[in-house]
Amino acid sequence: MTSENNSHPVKPANQRGAARLAAVQALYQMDVGGTGVLEIVAEYETHRLGQEIDGDTYLKADAGWFRSIVSGVVRDQRQLDPMIGAALQDDWALSRLDSTVRAILRAGTFELKERKDVPVAVIVTEYVEIAKAFFEEDEPKLVNAVLDRIAKQVRVEQRK
């Protein structure tokens, strides 16, 4: 793959980015609404990915990537949450974070831990961009700092 160029709309990286965004939205829905993983994955794959809903077009996404993030976060949440908690500032608890920020950090931490084939810089940048899509204040900086700290723990071999 070459550098980021949006003139190729079906590039795998773009589909992965769309999958990451959809995964964050799905994890948020599960966190807030208590929806189960099988139900949420089926809903997104059938009705959202690549579809238009209420005037919002959901980008075509790599469904396998989406599924692996959502199911992996659900499966590994007991390991991911302490990692995130340890990377937060001392006086912050994971439960105090906005549900969307929690979803972003869980998805990003899962990818850093499990997807060693994806460079740290790509993962951190993608999730910071997702944070910027939802927040204008300090949240993108928080996402960047926390994922960077976690990357230093789980990815010592590839810092760029």
Rank of each mutant, 00 (worst) to 15 (best):
Q77N: 02
R67A: 03
A131P: 03
D90P: 02
D117N: 10
I123T: 14
D90E: 15
P82N: 04
A63T: 13
I69F: 05
D54P: 00
T100A: 08
H47N: 14
H47S: 10
I69G: 02
L142T: 12
T125P: 01
V128R: 15
A121Y: 14
V70R: 00
E43M: 09
H47F: 14
L112Q: 04
E126Q: 12
F110V: 02
E52V: 13
I123V: 14
R67S: 07
I130G: 04
T46K: 15
G50A: 08
V70P: 02
G36K: 10
A107F: 05
S71T: 15
V120F: 05
T109F: 05
V70D: 07
L94V: 13
V70W: 08
M83A: 13
Y127S: 01
A103R: 03
R48I: 13
R67G: 01
T125V: 06
Q89T: 11
L94I: 13
I123S: 02
K141V: 10
S95L: 10
G72T: 11
R67T: 15
E52Q: 11
K132G: 06
T109I: 06
V128Y: 07
D62Q: 03
D91E: 14
D98V: 04
A133E: 13
V70G: 03
V124K: 01
M83D: 09
E136W: 09
V37M: 08
V70L: 05
E43P: 00
D62Y: 05
T109V: 12
T125M: 06
F66S: 01
F66I: 01
V41H: 05
R96E: 13
I84K: 00
Y58N: 02
P82H: 04
V124D: 02
D62L: 02
K113V: 09
K141C: 00
L38D: 14
D81M: 04
W92I: 10
L59N: 11
A107D: 11
